[in-house]
């Protein structure tokens, strides 16, 4: 029981502390520092209103700085030092990375993930969205395809570990192979190169629901008139889909595509749970974790490589946000 009480106490303390901070700091500002009364009431209110935004935003800025902004600089700096962190070796870690065959393999595998997963997820999601919108039981179908979204990567890996199992009394794939073709059991996790695709499919299984939900909303947002006009002009369903609908939801597809791409660059759990990086399935995040706690210099340099790959997405996102603000 002790840990439960401890947990509850910390929840109350943590949440209470946050509420307390906001309440007390505003109280201090309004009642003590610049009270809205007395001779300088106007200037007091003005000053309080200059300070207040910063009171509101300070905790968020603090954690953002400490947990995301500083690490970018901190990791870049740390990656220039050796294993124990006491000797400056300039780009030594990076040079060692580029010479290592495992790094090259992780990099190529990761590139494969970043291509295959978005292509298949978005395509499958688009098909599911288009199909479910026209069927009576579409909502149930959607809900079931969306479900893996709630399952952890570890849980999903375990679910598929059953499907991929060599034993034909456990693994569905080998059961089908044995039952229909009489073929001997194969361990799909150990087939060189192709095993990567079996791991990627687990992520596809999770991400398709995400793509489907967003694309389905986008499809429904298409103005009816454009489709009606196309029907009157005698377009067939495929023409309507590819010529009328696709162009109109293109920007949404781009958003979904980049989100899934960035996600597939950061995924660590699936490879870790399925193969532990063996059998040629290493990708950058799992390669980095093999150095974590052992060689911080190498670990941070791998992390920085991931960051550099993600950088173009980051820049285009910022540009987009600035355009919208104006």
């Amino acid at each position: 029981m002790n840990p439960i009480i401890q947990g509850l106490a910390t929840i109350i303390l943590g949440v209470g502390g946050c509420v307390g901070y906001f309440y007390a700091s505003n109280l201090l500002l309004d009642k003590v520092l610049y009270p809205a009364k007395g001779p300088n009431i106007a200037s007091n209110i003005r000053r309080a209103n200059i300070i207040r935004p910063w009171l509101f935003i300070f905790p968020a800025l603090l954690v953002l700085t400490v947990y995301l902004a500083y690490p970018v600089v901190g990791s870049a700096y740390r990656s220039l030092f050796n294993r124990s962190g006491d000797e400056y070796i300039a780009l030594g870690n990076y040079l060692a990375l580029f010479e290592s065959p495992e790094f090259r393999r992780s990099f190529l595998n990761n590139a494969l993930w970043a291509l295959f997963v978005p292509v298949v997820s978005v395509t499958a999601g688009l098909i599911a969205a288009q199909l479910s919108d026209t069927l009576k039981w579409g909502n149930i179908a959607k809900s079931l395809i969306f479900m893996p979204m709630a399952i952890s990567f570890v849980g999903a890996s375990l679910i598929w570990k059953f499907v991929y199992a060599v034993d034909s009394d456990i693994g569905l794939i080998n059961a089908v192979l044995a039952g229909l073709f009489g073929a001997g059991p194969i361990d799909v996790i150990q087939i060189p190169f192709w095993n990567n695709f079996f791991l990627m499919f687990i992520l596809v299984w999770i991400q398709t629901g995400f793509a489907m939900v967003i694309l389905s909303a986008a499809l429904r947002g298409i103005p009816e008139e454009t489709i009606e006009a196309a029907i009157l002009d005698g377009a067939n369903p495929f023409q309507i889909f590819f010529r009328i609908k696709m162009p109109q939801i293109f920007s949404t597809i781009v958003v979904v595509w980049t989100t899934i791409t960035v996600g597939s660059l950061k995924i660590f759990d699936i490879v870790y749970a399925m193969t532990g990086g063996n059998f040629g399935t290493e990708i950058l995040p799992s390669y980095m974790m093999s150095f974590m706690f052992r060689d911080d210099g190498r670990a941070t340099s791998v992390a920085l490589v991931i960051m550099i790959i993600v950088l173009p997405v980051m820049i285009s996102n910022i540009r987009q946000a600035q355009k919208e603000l104006r």
Partner: peptide, 12 residues
């Protein structure tokens, strides 16, 4: 939004 968490692990 897109900063990889991996980057934060060691420094944090």
């Amino acid at each position: 939004l897109v900063v990889p968490i991996q980057l934060a692990l060691v420094p944090v």
